[in-house]
């Protein structure tokens, strides 16, 4: 396990380095003067130009610039937003909470509802199973932004149960405002997790060790919990980790539809207004979160199934 963790950590570092390099190189690859790119072609007073030249080490060679930029980024200095005239790190910090809450809420739905419906379908063959299978088959194909539109049309406009816009105030208000976005974000992943849970639990229930446990007189709920679900947990954990990671990238869509003041919505605005430092900063933060969650999912799967740590995955 220690060796596996060390390998994963090394991979994580390399991945983050390459991703940061990709984020950084973009500015150099873009056509035209990097300063013009960084300022989004705004005309700037000479003293600002001098500050920017200094800040981005534009007079230094490429690799020196990258190392300097990365060093600043690691220390939490992501540059200045040209449009807002504020530190990118501060702008990100004030919005990261909304995105984190949204993704956490959504992944809680994915795990609870996904495993719940999957178990229900696996243990109740017949009409319940068919309904879950049909429902998840439809839901798995609906991407978050279409789910968001449907949820707004039904639960915000037609029924008026939940607000369609904004972040809300107070803990309860915020939860209420985040409910529809979280469900929109979670819908497709929930369906996928439910399907995997159903298949995995069914498969385990048909195995000999489960039959043995039943014939030994262990109560059925205990067999399901300790034998079937325990063994089915590996693919479920892997998929839930991947789903959570992908929701970090897709949160932007939902945030924009519901007018949430999160990182993703801000990233879209920054991309539209060519506020490059902000785009770089948010991309860096989101990719880091994406890679971390992916790694975490793999580690959880490895903890659940010791065979993985011995496997060939380098």
């Amino acid at each position: 396990m220690a060796g596996y963790l060390a390998r994963r950590a090394a991979m994580l570092l390399v991945t983050l380095l390459v991703s940061s390099f990709l984020v950084f190189t973009g500015v150099t690859l873009a056509p035209g003067d990097p300063l013009a790119t960084l300022s989004g072609n705004r005309s700037l007073p000479p003293e600002t130009v001098a500050v920017l030249r200094e800040r981005y080490h534009l007079d230094d060679p490429f690799l020196v610039r990258y190392v300097a930029w990365l060093g600043d980024a690691v220390r939490g200095d992501l540059g200045v937003s040209i449009a807002q005239r504020q530190d990118v790190s501060d702008l990100i910090a004030s919005r990261a909470g909304t995105t984190a809450a949204l993704v956490l809420y959504a992944s809680a739905i994915v795990v609870a509802a996904g495993v719940g419906f999957g178990l229900l379908a696996a243990l109740r063959p017949g009409i319940v199973d068919s309904m879950v299978v049909a429902g998840t088959a439809a839901a798995v194909a609906v991407p978050p932004f279409i789910a968001a539109i449907v949820l707004i049309a039904v639960f915000a406009v037609a029924l008026d149960w939940f607000p369609a816009f904004g972040t809300g105030s107070g803990l309860l208000g915020q939860i209420r405002h985040l409910t529809l976005p979280a469900f929109a974000l979670a819908a497709a992943s929930t369906a996928a997790v439910a399907r995997v849970t159903r298949t995995a639990v069914r498969e385990e229930l048909g195995r000999e060790h489960v039959q043995t446990a039943v014939s030994r007189g262990i109560s059925y709920p205990a067999v399901v919990r300790r034998h079937a679900l325990r063994n089915a947990a590996v693919p479920i954990a892997t998929l839930a980790g991947m789903s959570t990671a992908s929701m970090i990238a897709l949160a932007a869509v939902v945030e924009r539809v519901f007018g949430l003041n999160g990182l993703g919505a801000y990233l879209v605005n920054a991309a539209l207004s060519k506020d490059i430092a902000v785009v770089q900063g948010i991309c860096l933060v989101l990719v880091t979160a994406f890679v971390l969650v992916n790694t975490l999912g793999d580690v959880v799967a490895a903890a659940l199934d010791p065979r993985i740590t011995l496997g060939r995955r380098a």
Partner: peptide, 20 residues
């Protein structure tokens, strides 16, 4: 390693740099 970059994020980065 490159596996790690979500498509939508990369597209936003590219749109910001090279134009939508």
């Amino acid at each position: 390693v490159v596996f790690a970059f979500p498509g939508v994020l990369l597209a936003m980065l590219v749109a910001a740099l090279f134009g939508a």
